[in-house]
Design a protein around this nucleic acid. Structure first.
Lengths: 179, 179
DNA sequence: ACCGTTGTGAACATGAGTGTTCACCTGCTG
DNA sequence: CAGCAGGTGAACACTCATGTTCACAACGGT
């Protein structure tokens, strides 16, 4: 019930961040009054959607063994599968102005940043800052989600696309030692 | 005068897509009435800003020799320098619903897509679709712009970051043949 | 000095989103 | 059956962005 409401709100607000609460309620098949009862204000709804996305990420990242060297591959594969629910976090405008959410996001990034920094000793290049690599990973996720929702990319192809692109790049030089 | 107005509108609307016309006018140091006189409606302003960004891109891409093999590097380097004015195009929500703008964007993408397809015969990997490579390039630009506006990345470092990351990836395997 | 242009502030009407209340209905439980 | 929790639509007041009009000031050209 309530979870379906959040899912609907996510997709509606993601497609049009200026959508009215009436639009959200109608899309979810509930009355606007009911929506207001569960989320008193618009910002409360937005916060709930974002918080739900963060919960989703946490529930995924706690299954990842960050001590393994292929932790990034594992994490990315799992994140790709989450799709729009999480895309909301990176895309919804003005979300970063909520200090509580921003803090949770930073806290969520920390283990990944640590992992990247550690792997820069072995498999990751050292001439790029860890934060840049992190953002590159996110950008790859973002690309995949967008392509999937546009129908251009099959969900099952997505992890491979993201990982090969981010790790090996689009130059054919890197592709040689893989084929 | 009018160009400065568009620049201000770009940055204000980029920071907060829901900013009111009053906010834009105040940031530009002009009266709201004046803004209304130049751009009768809000959507007219948005379209003008987007159109300005497209003009900017066209003025850059006409200096690029698309027959050269390093055309992508050239194009990316020039695009990175444009910064927020163009970021608006990729970021402002609902922009793709304007069919005229969408058509101009597609038309703008076409020569780049052709270039990518051609280069997939030589320097670009063939196991990824051209559109994916294009979006990966855009994602790199996006990352750079965001990092620059956050103050984390020096504008002069940006082209190198984007190009090495997109072409060679973040894995240290590709970095070996460069160092 | 006159006049057209351009920008400005003030004021107003309008519409939409929002938050709230209320009366009513439904289904479940004791 | 009574009571209660949860959902619903209707109606309301309120706020705010928006678009419009108008009168006034500044400026440049004639």
């Amino acid at each position: 019930m309530s979870v379906h409401l959040l899912q609907t709100a996510t997709s509606v607000l993601l497609k049009d961040p200026t959508a009215s609460l009436g639009d959200v309620a109608r899309a979810a098949g509930v009355g606007r009054t009911t929506l207001h009862k569960r989320f008193p204000t618009r910002s409360a709804l937005v916060r709930a959607v974002a918080s739900d996305a963060l919960d989703l990420i946490e529930s995924v990242s706690c299954h990842v063994d960050f001590s393994r060297d292929d932790a990034i591959e594992d994490l990315m594969t799992r994140l790709v599968a989450l799709g729009p629910r999480v895309e909301f976090l990176l895309r919804f405008p003005g979300l970063e102005r909520d200090e509580e959410l921003a803090a949770r996001i930073r806290e969520m990034d920390r283990p990944v940043l640590d992992l990247i920094t550690r792997l820069q000793g072995t498999k990751l290049r050292r001439d790029l800052p860890a934060w840049w690599i992190l953002h590159t990973l996110y950008a790859g996720l973002f690309n995949a989600w967008e392509a999937i929702s546009d129908g251009r990319l099959a969900p099952l192809d997505a992890p491979r696309f993201v990982l090969t692109t981010v790790f090996e790049g689009v130059s054919s030089a890197g592709a040689a030692d893989r084929t």
